[in-house]
Measured scan of single mutants.
Amino acid sequence: KELVLALYDYQEKSPREVTMKKGDILTLLNSTNKDWWKVEVNGRQGFVPAAYVKKL
């Protein structure tokens, strides 16, 4: 599985998104969309802005 690092805090704005804190390590589930990547964090799956994370 591929991991990404949260570069910034992000507060979810819809049920399809997830909240993350700067420094969190997230599991990358899908990065086919250039703007929104699907990740898993704390057992929850959802989208975060691709610009807010970096592949490890």
Rank of each mutant, 00 (worst) to 15 (best):
L56N: 04
K1R: 15
D35S: 13
A51G: 11
K55S: 10
E2M: 13
K54E: 15
S14Y: 08
L26N: 01
E40R: 07
L3G: 04
V41S: 13
P49D: 01
T19F: 05
F47T: 03
D35T: 15
N33R: 10
W37L: 05
L28N: 01
P15C: 08
D35A: 15
K1W: 15
A51M: 12
K54C: 09
G43T: 06
T32P: 04
W37M: 04
V4F: 08
S14D: 13
N33P: 05
V53Y: 01
G23R: 02
M20H: 01
K21D: 04
D9A: 07
Y8A: 14
W37P: 01
G46R: 02
K1Y: 11
N33Q: 10
D24L: 05
T27F: 14
W37C: 04
D9Q: 04
D35L: 14
S14F: 07
L7I: 12
V48T: 02
T32Q: 13
V39Y: 00
T19I: 03
G43H: 08
Y52S: 14
D24A: 08
S31N: 09
P49N: 03
V53Q: 00
L28M: 04
M20C: 06
F47H: 06
L26E: 00
V41K: 15
G23Y: 04
T27R: 15
T19E: 04
F47Q: 04
V18K: 02
Q45G: 07
Y52K: 07
A50N: 03
Q45A: 12
V53D: 00
K21H: 12
L3W: 12
V39F: 00
K34E: 15
T32L: 10
W36T: 02
N42D: 13
Q11P: 07
K38S: 09
L26V: 09
Y10S: 01
Y52F: 13
V53R: 00
K38C: 10
E12R: 14
D24P: 00
G46I: 04
L28R: 01
A6D: 00
K21W: 10
L28S: 02
T27A: 12
L28H: 02
K55G: 06
K54A: 14
A51Y: 10
E17G: 14
N33H: 14
R44A: 07
Y10A: 01
E40H: 06
R44L: 09
K55R: 12
Q11M: 14
A51C: 09
G46H: 02
Y10H: 04
I25G: 01
E2H: 09
N42F: 09
D35P: 03
F47Y: 12
K55C: 07
G23A: 03
A6V: 14
W37G: 00
L26D: 00
Y8C: 10
N30G: 07
A51T: 11
D9V: 03
T19K: 04
R16T: 13
L3H: 10
W37A: 04
R16V: 15
E2N: 12
K55E: 07
A6N: 01
A51I: 11
G23C: 06
Q45F: 10
K54I: 14
K13M: 14
S31P: 07
Y52G: 07
K54H: 10
K22L: 05
N42Q: 11
G23W: 06
R44N: 07
S14I: 05
K34R: 11
L5C: 08
G23K: 02
V4K: 01
V4I: 09
D24K: 03
D24N: 07
E17T: 09
K1P: 14
N30Y: 08
V53F: 05
W36C: 06
D35G: 11
W36P: 00
S31K: 08
I25A: 03
T27V: 15
K55Q: 10
W36G: 01
K21S: 11
G23E: 02
P49A: 02
Y8L: 11
K55F: 09
Q11K: 15
N42T: 07
V4M: 06
K34F: 10
V53A: 03
L3D: 05
G23F: 05
W36R: 03
L28A: 02
L29V: 13
E40Y: 07
Q11L: 11
A50L: 02
L26K: 00
L7E: 04
I25D: 01
R16I: 14
M20D: 00
K13L: 11
L29W: 06
K38H: 15
P49F: 02
E12C: 09
N33G: 12
L26C: 08
K34S: 13
A51R: 14
N30D: 15
K21Y: 12
G43N: 12
K54R: 15
L28G: 01
L56H: 07
M20W: 02
A50W: 02
L3N: 06
N30S: 14
L56P: 04
K13N: 11
V48F: 00
K1N: 13
V48Q: 00
D24Q: 13
K34T: 12
K54G: 11
T32W: 09
L5E: 15
T19G: 10
L5A: 06
E12N: 08
T32D: 15
V41M: 10
K13R: 12
D35Y: 09
K34Q: 10
N30F: 08
G46M: 05
V4L: 15
W36I: 03
W37F: 08
S31T: 11
K34N: 13
K22C: 06
N33F: 09
W37S: 03
W37Y: 09
T32C: 10
K34A: 14
L5I: 13
E12W: 06
V41L: 14
T27P: 14
K55T: 10
M20R: 00
D35W: 14
K22V: 08
Q11Y: 15
K13T: 15
I25F: 07
L28D: 00
Q11A: 13
A50Y: 02
D9K: 03
F47K: 03
E17P: 05
E40A: 09
Y52P: 00
K21M: 09
D9E: 07
K13A: 12
L7W: 03
F47C: 08
K38W: 15
K55H: 11
L29Q: 05
G46L: 05
L7D: 02
L29K: 05
